[in-house]
């Protein structure tokens, strides 16, 4: 025993630098694994965002070789543009109505699909029917609803046959109807995501909570208010914030149905920014508008992250 001790110590002495090397390598390995992702994030997200922020402080970017620093002039121009303010108002209405309706419809359908009153086959059929809108791409949805809501389309024909309207309604081309029409289409296209998520959350609520509530003599509504909703609260908050963010970025549906018209009644921040860039070639003001949208989205993202932390 005593003979081996000195040998061990003499071998251990030169091993110290090697150990430190291996410790360093071990420390660096995680960064090595992360580096492709970090590189992608930097190239695909950080660089474009920084470039857009940079453009927003210059004048005549992209179209002129020698653009000049313009300070906050582009922001002033955007924030005082009546079209931008109108787009901001339309976007606020569009995302609020869409998110609220997604939530109500998603919860209603999820509760229906979770109900013990329906048989297995019936539930399966309803699940397929309810989830269908989610399976279509935005382009298909836009084409379908443009046809359905055409003044000579099926919807007007049905409503006229039922005697609910006398003349065909110009759903997308009447300035007073267009915003509600695109909101309706967006609601139709988006509720299945809420429904699926809330259905999963409903199925995760322990049954003994309902049993205990039933023992306490509660009715259906009281169980919904005091058991179901509190249990769903974290999911509802996360979904609502995410939906607000996603809906605020909706571009394709608006562009393919109304293009922001008629008379700017469906102009959103996304379509406003697109027109500034690709129709007016005002990339600097488009960048300023995009940065403003980014900041507004970050406020929503802050609430989302906070709700996630609370969970």
């Amino acid at each position: 025993m005593t003979l081996t001790a000195p040998e061990t110590s003499t071998r251990a002495a030169p091993a110290v630098p090697g150990r430190s090397r291996s410790t360093l390598t071990r420390r660096l390995v995680p960064y090595g694994y992360l580096s492709p992702t970090v590189l992608l994030i930097v190239v695909l997200m950080v660089v474009p965002i920084v470039m857009v922020i940079g453009y927003s402080f210059r004048d005549n970017v992209i179209v002129q070789e020698n653009s000049v620093f313009a300070g906050f002039a582009n922001y002033t121009k955007v924030l005082t543009d009546p079209s931008f303010l109108s787009a901001l108002k339309n976007t606020a209405i569009f995302i609020s109505v869409s998110t609220a309706a997604h939530l109500v419809l998603g919860l209603a359908f999820a509760m229906m699909l979770n109900s013990p009153l329906l048989g297995g086959v019936t539930k399966a059929i309803f699940r397929i029917v309810y989830i269908l809108p989610w399976l279509f791409t935005i382009a298909v949805i836009a084409v379908i609803w443009r046809l359905l809501l055409d003044p000579a389309g099926v919807v007007n024909h049905v409503l006229q046959t039922l005697g609910l309207i006398e003349q065909g309604v110009n759903w997308f081309s009447d300035p007073s109807m267009a915003l509600w029409a695109v909101s309706f289409v967006n609601i139709w296209a988006g509720y299945p995501f809420f429904m699926i998520s809330l259905l999963a959350a409903l199925q995760g609520i322990p049954g003994d909570l309902y049993e205990a509530a039933a023992v306490d003599g509660t009715n259906w509504f009281q169980r919904f208010v005091h058991v179901t909703l509190p249990q769903l609260r974290p999911v509802i908050i996360s979904m609502a914030v995410l939906d607000l963010i996603w809906t605020s970025h909706q571009f394709a549906l608006i562009w393919m149905t109304t293009g922001g018209g008629p008379l700017n009644s469906t102009e959103m921040l996304s379509t406003f920014t697109y027109k500034q860039a690709f129709s007016e070639y005002e990339f600097a003001t488009a960048s300023a508008a995009a940065v403003i949208v980014l900041l507004l989205t970050m406020v929503l993202a802050f609430f989302y992250v906070r709700s996630q932390r609370e969970r």
Binding site: D150, P151, A152, N170, S173, D174, P175, T258, P262
Partner: peptide, 21 residues
């Protein structure tokens, strides 16, 4: 003028003519 002008696209125009509308 066929209704829906304010948000009508070129392809809608061709379709309405093709359909005899």
């Amino acid at each position: 003028i066929a209704p829906g002008s304010l948000t009508m696209k070129e392809q809608d125009k061709v379709e309405k003519f093709s359909n005899g509308q």
